[in-house]
Structure formats: C-alpha cells, structure tokens
Amino acid sequence: MPRLITKSPLAGLWPVTHGGVALSEVVLEGITSVAVLPGGQKAVDKTLKPLGVAFPAPGLFSENGALRLVWTGRDQAFLLNGTLACEGAALTDQSDGWACLRLEGAAAADVLARLYPLDLRAAAFPPGRAARAALGHMSSVLMRVEGGFEILVFRSMARSAWTELEHAMQHLAARAGA
C-alpha cells in the first residue's frame, strides 16, 4: 500500500519578508465548526469550561494555549487546534477546508489595509478581535493575535491569498523605500 503524506495547504511555499512584514503558513491541528443548536448554549458552555475557553461574542476569539475558539457567525464559532464532543451544538470537521496564514511585523495592519475595508489599527482591532470579512474577493476569518494577524481562507484559495498578501507587502515596501 502506498504511504500517503499529508500536505499542508501552502506546502512548498516558504516564509517571505518584505519591508519588515513576514508572511508564513500556520499549520493547524484541526478545525471544528461549532454551531450552537436552539437551546444548546448551556450545554456548549458546560463543555467548554474545562477546556479553558468561552464561546466568543461576535467579533472576538477566546483562547487557552494553542486552543482557540473564534466567532464565525451567528451562534457559530470555529474551534482551532482541538476537538469537542457536545450535544448542544452541531459539530462539523472543517480541518481540510481551510488554510491559515500569518502576517507579522510593525506594518502588518498597513498591508492588510490594502485588502480589507476595515479599521485594523491596534486601537480599533486589538489582539483577541476577529472579523469575518473579504480579503480582496475571498471570504476569510481575520484574527488579531499578539504580534500580528492570522487569516483563515478556503483551502482552494490559499495560494491566491498568499499571492495577494505578498503583492501588498511588496507594494508597501516599495513605497517606503521610495
């Protein structure tokens, strides 16, 4: 039997840096969609408590170590780097459907300002904040983490997202150098 090798969505692309902003892939250990069923919030909260995360209000994420629960819609969140068993929510494995990119550096928000129509300055969008918004024309989940941003995009669009982000980084670096 052939030995199958798992490939990450951005396998073959190595971290790049332009103008002090670094782009890299984050390999997640599983993504589970947690869609709270009508009347299921209590059961969900009870299940989450020992994990050290709370169901996030809109536009936020909650984390404990590598485990993160990010708001993705009305009564819905994505659990990153973990799994869950709970009667109060419809759980679906999304692990193979998404890619995660990380942007770091002082000018990371300026790079994203070229692609997101959002106010991403630290005062308006501090660590712990999340948004569902379009990266160019791609649906995405944007998270502000310590030191930068992490972005979930559909796996099928991972390389497009990477290319668009790198172009924005290059344009910003060129402008700074002029």
């Binding site: 536009g59 129509p117 959002l118 569902r132 918004a133």
Partner: peptide
Amino acid sequence: PLCGERDRRE
C-alpha cells in the same frame, strides 16, 4: 448588528 460598520459593497 454582528459585524459592525461595513462598506455597502459587502
């Protein structure tokens, strides 16, 4: 009500 102020094109 969930996402905050957003551009009309969204």
